[in-house]
Structures are given as structure tokens and as C-alpha cells.
Computed example of a mutant assay.
Amino acid sequence: MSSSDSPVGLLLVNLGTPEAPDIASVRRYLAQFLSDRRVVDLPRALWLPILYGVVLNTRPARSAKLYELIWNSDTGEGPLKTFTRLQAEKLQARMGSPRLIVDYALRYGSPSIATQIEALAAKNCERIALLPLYPQYASSTTGSAADAAFDALRDKRKQPALRIAAPYYDDPAYIDALAANIGGALAALDFEPEVIVASFHGLPQAQIDRGDPYRDHCEATWRLLCASLGMSPERLRLAFQSRFGRSQWIGPYTSDVVTELAGQGVKRIAVVAPGFAADCLETIEELGVEIRDLFHRNGGEKYARLPCLNDSEESIALIETLAKRELAGWM
């Protein structure tokens, strides 16, 4: 079989999830995640004693309880894994080429990037495109996924050609998908939000100061989304969630924005997470429960968490657009 006739692999990549909602599984997942130098770039001599002496002895029990609340018991998966798998399955069916093999991988947990690259190579894929489902580039997400892919090929005598898709934070197809998804979700509510909060995952400010473009990408997405939805920056507020530790993270923090809105007398809000390709613990529990309860405690009355793109029609059409761009010249 010539290289021009061999199958082409497309690997959708997202962050990850524990294998089960129990303490041991969550501890393994957090150990892998928080040991990544791109995620926590503190000196190892400082960070590892904290990680193994404090974090992994305290955080897994609480996180396991939260994962249990959102776990997909029918499939034995966390929601992020379920949605990423469905995205790959639906994209395979949608694109319909016998030469294209679509699969998915998780940066932390399983199936791993290394395992899935090996599986595609075993199916004679001499060309593999990695599509990280992170619209906004961050060293700790897209950069880490690229590291894992290159590490998987490091010792191979026969390496497939590898492409890593660019971030798509300002891509019209992405903005259109978000706007359609948000518009549909708002229309389904039984109230009209006075303010919508666009909550992106946060990053330590120190990583931004060292050159990470993530905040710029988030702000670009937010501005384009404001324009697409016809909303002012006051109606669609920018915020960042999931702060961890005591260091300064990029802001404004979602918790502060929601508290401020309630304090100003705003009674009805909705929250959306444009940077997440699939719902996960940070959207379902943090935004759907913690931030909701915070809003209500401070005087808010109506609150809605809007769903991520997940495996919606808008999502699969977007991923198809991105995939065709990366596969150009190979298919």
C-alpha cells in the first residue's frame, strides 16, 4: 500500500477524567495531571513535597464525591470522556471516508495519547492529525498534548507524519457554533437573564507573564462572541474560574463577578463556559452548583448554567470544519 492510499488518522484530544469516581482513581488522575510541568511549573523540589504530602492526601476524597455526583453510570465514564467519545463517533459517521480513522484520546487518564497513536499506527496510518479540543491555546493544555504526542513517537523507528491543529479561538466557525448553541439554550429558559457570564478556565498570572497567550485568546473569543450575539460587554461579562492555590490567577474571578452582580441587584443570570468543548466537573459542578449557590446566597433569584457544545449538531459541524482544514492535502 502506497502512502497516498494508506489510512489517515484523526485524533480528537481533550483533558481527561479519572477511571472511576473513587478516591484511589482520583488520586492517580490528579497525580498525573498535577505532575505535568506545563500544568504546575514550580521547581520540583518545592512542588512535589506539597503535591504528595498535602494535595494528594486531602483533595482526592472531596473530588471523588463530586465525580460520583456527575458520573455516567450507564457507560462507566465521566461526562467529558462520554462527550469526547461521542464527538469522535459522530465525526467518523459524518465525514464518512473509508480512508479516515477518527478516534479520541485524553491527555490524563485513558485512552492516552500514546496508546491511541500506537493504535492508529497499527492500522497503517502513516499520517496522523491531532486536534486538541482547546479553542484557546495554553501551554498547559495544547502544549502539553503536543508534548505527549511527540513523546509517544520519540523511540519509534517508523514514525507517522504528525500534524497538531492550531487553536481556533477566533475562527468564525467556532464563534458561529457558540452563538447558535447559546441562542438555543437561552430560548429554552423560562426567564430572560439580565446578564450572561462567559466563564473561561483560569491560569496562574505568572504563566501569562511568561508569555502564554491564553488570556489574549480568551478575550478575543469573548469580544467576537459579544459581537455575534449583539451583546455589550456589560451584558456578556468576561470571567475566569477554577482558581487553585494561593497565588494570583487571571481575573476577574467568576465567583467575584457573580457576587458583584448579585450585590448590584441583578436577580437573573446565566453562565456559559465557551472555552470548554465538553461539559465536565468544572462546568457541571463548579458552575452548575457552587457558583449557582453563591449567587443565590447573595440575593440572586434565577440562575441557569448553559451547556457546552458537547456532541450537539453545532459541535460536530465545527469539528468537521477544523478537521478538514488540518487534513487538507492528505485526504
Rank of each mutant, 00 (worst) to 15 (best):
T17M: 04
C218L: 03
F200R: 03
K90V: 00
L306S: 09
L203P: 01
K158I: 14
V102M: 13
G329M: 04
E192G: 02
M231N: 01
V40H: 06
E314F: 04
E314D: 13
L51N: 09
V26N: 02
L318H: 09
L131W: 06
H296M: 13
V8C: 13
A173V: 06
L91P: 05
A105L: 01
L261V: 03
A24N: 06
R163T: 14
Q264R: 15
D216P: 00
F276R: 11
A24F: 01
Y303I: 08
S25F: 06
D190Q: 13
K90C: 01
A148D: 05
S35F: 05
S247E: 15
V257F: 05
D279K: 13
P233D: 07
R62P: 00
V195E: 12
Q136D: 03
P193M: 12
M95G: 05
D22G: 11
Q32M: 12
G211K: 10
L203R: 07
R223D: 00
K156Q: 14
V195F: 08
V266N: 12
R268P: 01
Y29L: 11
W330H: 09
P21L: 11
M1H: 14
I269H: 10
R62I: 02
Q136M: 03
A177F: 07
A262V: 02
A138M: 08
C226Y: 02
R157P: 01
T115G: 06
R215W: 00
I319F: 13
G184N: 14
S232F: 01
K90H: 12
P98M: 12
A198H: 08
I284D: 12
S144H: 06
Q87F: 03
G329L: 09
S140N: 12
L238I: 11
R325F: 00
